[in-house]
């Protein structure tokens, strides 16, 4: 695990440096406008990496927590809540009123859903409740989003909503980044502290309790950590798919399937994948218009299917 993390960390660091030199601006113009590096490429790099880390980490935590390799950070409804808040503000035409209008609205949605999930899971701390509630929340929030789209009289607002939903790391200011990243880091720390619980959970919820995990506490921390890791970032960036499902799945064999040891490599791997995808988007932007979420899904899905089919049956755990 240590070697793997070191390697992934090294790759990520190299990519972070390299990404500053990727863009469409010719070098002579770049030298005249050095602020492009600091005001455009640097925050873009930071936001891509932290989104990737959040997705990789939350994916690994959630899969370990629910003991289900199909779990994906979106299943709890937190991302949908962020999206709904943001979409509502865009549809009302307030998206341009302030730099923080959209992300703050998204975070209001996240706070609401988190509070609801937290209250519910303190009453019924079990995975089925979490999955079913997430399913219900996702379809409710999805319906509300569709409603907003259909009610919106402004075709440009609808276009903006659709583009926003596709997710993009571009054009976020340093101020926004400085606001969002500390919140995410707080979420990462909370999730990181769930390592022991994840380890014990691999023997089932009952054994986890026997070994000292408290159901109420672990669901509380899970929801809080997920909300902080995902909520602010999704509110700013939009929904970027598939990294949270793919990366933990890909790296699990390298840590001998140990759910706690998966967290760090998965977080780093998520950062690499998000940043690499964004760099590809930028490199190709003169030839083809791609959105980073589209690219991750396009690249990820066939690879994921390949891994799934290649795997020996025994490693499909208990499903």
């Amino acid at each position: 695990m240590r070697k793997l993390s070191l390697l992934l960390g090294l790759v990520l660091t190299l990519l972070m440096g390299g990404s500053l030199f990727i863009g469409t601006l010719p070098l002579d113009l770049l030298l005249q406008n050095a602020s492009v590096l600091w005001e455009l490429r640097f925050p873009r790099m930071l936001i891509a990496v932290s989104m990737g880390v959040s997705l990789g980490l939350t994916g690994a935590v959630l899969q370990g927590f629910l003991r289900n390799p199909l779990a994906e950070p979106g299943i709890m409804g937190i991302s949908s809540a962020a999206a709904l808040g943001a979409v509502m503000v865009i549809a009302l035409g307030l998206g341009g009123s302030h730099l923080f209008a959209v992300p703050l609205a998204g975070m209001m949605g996240v706070v609401g859903v988190t509070f609801f999930l937290y209250k519910l899971m303190q009453k019924h701390p079990n995975p089925l409740t979490l999955i079913l509630t997430g399913l219900a929340l996702n379809s409710l929030l999805g319906a509300l989003m569709t409603l907003i789209l259909t009610l919106s009289h402004n075709p440009y607002a609808s276009l903006e909503i659709i583009f926003w939903l596709l997710g993009s790391f571009a054009h976020h200011s340093l101020g926004q980044v400085a606001f969002v990243i500390p919140l995410s880091v707080a979420g990462w720390i909370i999730l990181w502290r769930l390592r022991f619980t994840l380890e014990t959970l691999s023997l089932g919820e009952e054994m986890a309790i026997v070994l000292g995990a408290s159901p109420k506490k672990m669901y509380g921390f899970l929801i809080l950590g997920m909300a902080l890791s995902l909520g602010p970032l999704v509110s700013l960036v939009g929904v970027v798919g598939f990294i949270g499902l793919l990366v933990p799945h890909m790296l699990r064999p390298f840590v001998d399937h140990k759910p706690a040891d998966l967290l760090l490599p998965s977080a780093l791997g998520g950062g690499i994948m998000a940043l690499a995808a964004d760099m590809v988007v930028r490199l190709l932007s003169n030839h083809i218009d791609l959105k980073v979420g589209v690219l991750t899904s396009l690249m990820g899905t066939p690879f994921f299917l390949y891994l799934l089919l290649k795997q020996p049956r025994s490693s499909h755990a208990t499903f």
Partner: peptide
């Protein structure tokens, strides 16, 4: 600008 007021105009880079 094609699409009404945009949050972009509050971005320091855009302003400059």
């Amino acid at each position: 600008l094609l699409e009404g007021p945009s949050k972009n105009r509050h971005h320091p880079f855009w302003k400059r």
